[in-house]
Amino acid sequence: MKRKLLAARLDLADKISEIASRKGTLYDYVNDILEQAIRAEELGIRLKEVLDDRWLIKTARDAGFIVIPKKIICELAEQAYAKLGKKKMKKLWYETGQWYGKYYDDLKEFEKAVKRYFWDLSEFKLAKKGENLTLTCLSSKYSEVYPELFSKFLEGALNALGYSLEEGEVSKGIISLRFSKSKGK
């Protein structure tokens, strides 16, 4: 097989050589790396994004999220909604949201997490104006029950982050909530 020389940044070349020495030969290790870079290129993705995503999954798991087809979660939610009633189900989502609000303990971090993990949302925006906060969330019109429950999840989280719900509108595909800073927070 024909070989070519490629110039690499000294610090990176040294690091790659060091790793290679634990795995086998430098040539084989570089070969593997370049093959995967070409594979990523053919898939139309950037290696940096792929590695960022890997990190995302790890942090999602650490935060207690699980990947599940939306069809299943919507179906389960609708069945449970009918059996347990609105009140209990909303309470469950609200309390789970509260837990996440406390877990992230920062409005910006929570916003980032929602944007990262709920990739089905076409828009998620938190707009702060003085003591008021407006939340807008748009997603596919998948289910009637799911947005209602998801809005309780968001309300619970924002409540734990120091905001009380003033008014809200929830319909298929759209959640629009307005909060104000909780007294004493």
Partner: peptide
């Protein structure tokens, strides 16, 4: 890198399937 790209492809399968992240506690409760 191979493992990471393999995993990325699997995550894409989930995205294509319309899967989302859900709090585990909620799933188990439901």
């Amino acid at each position: 890198l191979k493992e990471i790209i393999d995993n990325y492809e699997i995550l894409e399968v989930h995205k294509e399937a319309g899967a989302i992240f859900t709090p585990r506690d909620i799933l188990d409760h439901l």
